[in-house]
Amino acid sequence: MGFVSRGFVGRPEAREGTGLLPPGQYDIGDGFPVLSAGPTPRTALADWDFTISGEVDEPERLTWQEFQDLPHEDVTVDIHCVTKWSKFGTTWSGVSLDTLLDRVETSADYLSAFCDGGYTTNLPLEDVTGGSAWIVDRYDGEQLEAQHGGPARLLVPHLYFWKSAKWVRGVALSGVEEPGFWETLGYHIYGDPWREQRYAGD
């Protein structure tokens, strides 16, 4: 497709051909492209909160300080963007979704992440639990930059990176899957890079 922005030049790296690169992807090396569907939101930390809403016994709201006080985990993972770049060994720090979702009672099977700027993405609950997803606020030892989704973004590294929503402000739990921003515009509802689920019907 023709929407990849200028300067995304693939180059062969050592990991290509090792089985670590999902089909159709290339190793971008040290680069970290910024793909954005709008202006960068800049929410003051004093105004930031994270809410867990929808089909829960009692909605939960955490301020920035309350979020900071939760146990953080260091995570090193490979990430795979649907525009075909992959980046290996990225290091993040954040709060596991297990820790956050333990604060509510729910019988939901899905969640929608919602974000400053209006972006949404949908995920099965089982894909964000069991140590597979985090709300991260640090990247490479530094506070997460706004252009990469700071103050906090979702990190779901086993799915295409559009699922790792930038500027996340909460999750809404539901018994039905509600397709998100790209999932309603021709992109795959689930987005597994190893099965190359880029587009609806893949």
Binding site: F3, P33, S36, G38, P39, W182
Partner: peptide
Amino acid sequence: VYADAPGMVVRCPTCEAM
């Protein structure tokens, strides 16, 4: 127009609504 996302997003130049 924001063209570097997976798709192309057109926004109002006054209010930035999509």
